[in-house]
Simulated assay, not measured.
Amino acid sequence: MGGSDSEAAEIYRQTVASGWASYIRVESLLIATDPRPLGFGALTVRELLVAFEIPLQWTYRRPRRGDDGMIGVEMVTAADLAHLLILLEATGFTIDPTPLCEALRPQLRTREHLTAAELAIWWHPKERHRSAPKVLATGPRGTWGTPGHDLITATGYRADLFRDVAGNATALTVSAPKWRPGRRLAA
């Protein structure tokens, strides 16, 4: 992990205990583990959640006798947070979703049906660092141009940036260190 391991561990603990993580906790976790996605105003947490199709939901404390109003907080489920971390790791960020996934997996053993996020948690130990390349592109592959920059992250992910003839970025591909072409993935 990047910044504060103890802060990340506490956020994981609270998320598993409640089943939810507030928007602020998600932001704090990302900053504690790998601040790059949020660095220099590059992306907001909301933009990351939208990009990875992770839903924010308004949640409210259960009303008590005499309550006549409630204040809502935007949160993501614990499973959705783990899925976000899995996706960020698969995109090359130095975020380790393993502690949260390991804490949530026992709950999944008793369920007959799993959501997409829960399935990602279930398969995480087997698929970690083996996922198919992630692609972010402005058009079909034939329009990407040629790769101009590539880098290998500290965790072994290879990122290739493609540019058109005008020098505009047209695509970004990120390949996992243990991915092999033709390999059949679990999910």
Rank of each mutant, 00 (worst) to 15 (best):
L49F: 07
P133R: 02
Y60C: 07
G72K: 05
R109C: 03
V165E: 14
R61V: 13
R46C: 01
I86C: 09
P55A: 03
V50G: 01
F93D: 09
M70W: 09
T115W: 04
T146P: 03
R141M: 11
A132C: 09
E118T: 04
G69R: 15
P106Q: 05
F162L: 04
R163K: 12
L81R: 00
A120E: 01
I54K: 01
P97Y: 05
D96A: 13
A154Q: 13
V45G: 00
T143F: 06
D68I: 12
R61C: 05
A159N: 07
T59I: 08
V165R: 08
P99S: 06
F52W: 09
L151H: 12
A103E: 06
S131F: 07
R64S: 14
R65H: 13
R130N: 04
L119A: 09
A166S: 14
L43Y: 08
I54A: 02
V76E: 01
D67C: 10
L136A: 14
R46K: 13
K134L: 11
R158Q: 12
L85M: 15
P55T: 01
R64H: 11
L85K: 12
E118I: 01
P63N: 06
E53Y: 02
I152K: 12
T59P: 03
W144G: 03
D164L: 00
I86W: 04
